[in-house]
């Protein structure tokens, strides 16, 4: 029991008696976690924007007169990749036309009987599915014609695929760079105490006794860095979103506190575990070297 107490006290000593080094490690950890957090938010927002654009893509399927709209809508809903089906009756179509015409809405009275056909507005999960869905709809006997932005769907589909690949690459680069920087900072911190580690082993400390304070120190510093980074990412993100909403109000941004809270938790957890592993590897490597007889 005493030994555990001493180990924790030694870890605390390591943090406070090498305050400059500790501060440097926390600052480095904070910077790298900030970069990872900012990258994650950037990626998630891009994905969110693309998803929102994909969600706006729809196929208008004009149905033949006399078709039971509700029954047909139900059968379309059951099709794969369909996310939403809206029934547009002849009356709704006319209302929409009136709304679109604005001041000249009265012009529709010139049409006499409502010539607009009933239709279904079909939305699919992703832009990549739009063309296939359009092909399936046009082959159905109830459908007279379809209208959809095929060219836009194709481009959006390519953009979504690119964003997915880009996100993975960006995240891998950010996490790898952060891990390397953090590992080296912790290694420098451990190496600056090389003499101490060597003496501790010489007077009979076990490898575990020597390593544990360093690992706990890594945990404390990594956790501090991740907490500061998480706060900094949160603060600067909301400031950035406020600015962007002024400049690009038509884009949709992630603003859910709950979602951002979860993201912070992931950042803190990953940051702490990363620091812990970096400390363990650095100190173990050095202990092995220091403990080797000449």
């Amino acid at each position: 029991m005493s030994r555990i107490k001493y180990v924790f006290r030694d870890a605390w000593r390591l943090v406070w008696r090498h305050f400059g080094m500790s501060l440097l490690t926390v600052f480095t950890a904070m910077t790298v976690f900030f970069v990872v957090g900012a990258t994650m938010l950037f990626i998630l927002n891009i994905q969110n924007i693309v998803r929102a654009m994909e969600g706006q893509l729809s196929i208008n399927a004009y149905v033949k007169p006399g078709t039971d709209l509700n029954a047909f809508a139900e059968s379309v809903k059951k099709m794969e990749n369909v996310s939403e089906v809206t029934i547009i009756t002849k009356e709704t179509a006319l209302e929409r036309l009136r709304a679109r015409l604005g001041n000249q809405a009265n012009a529709v009275t010139l049409l006499g009987e409502n010539p607009l056909p009933s239709s279904l507005e079909v939305k699919v999960g992703s832009a990549a599915d739009v063309s296939d869905m359009a092909r399936m709809l046009v082959a159905m006997p109830e459908v007279e014609d379809i209208v959809y932005a095929g060219h836009v769907a194709q481009k959006l589909s390519r953009l979504a695929a690119f964003v997915r690949r880009f996100s993975i690459v960006m995240l891998i680069i950010a996490v790898t760079a952060s891990a390397v920087v953090l590992f080296n900072t912790i290694r420098v911190s451990v190496y600056s105490r090389a003499e101490e580690i060597s003496v501790m082993l010489k007077v009979g400390a076990t490898s575990t006794y020597v390593a544990f304070p360093f690992v706990i120190q890594g945990f404390i510093l990594g956790l501090s860095g991740a907490l500061f980074a998480s706060a900094a990412v949160g603060y600067s993100y909301f400031r950035a979103v406020a600015c962007l909403k002024d400049m690009l109000p038509f884009l949709s941004y992630i603003e859910s506190y709950r979602y951002l809270g979860k993201l912070s938790l992931v950042l803190i957890l990953c940051g702490t575990v990363m620091s812990l592993i970096a400390s363990l590897v650095a100190v173990e490597k050095f202990i092995r070297k220091a403990g080797k007889p000449l």
């Binding site: 005493s2 030994r3 001493y6 501790m200 007077v203 009979g204 400390a205 076990t206 006794y209």
Partner: peptide, 11 residues
């Protein structure tokens, strides 16, 4: 004290 601490001796 360090030498005794690693032996787990009480404070």
């Amino acid at each position: 004290a360090f030498v005794l601490e690693i032996m787990g001796m009480p404070r």
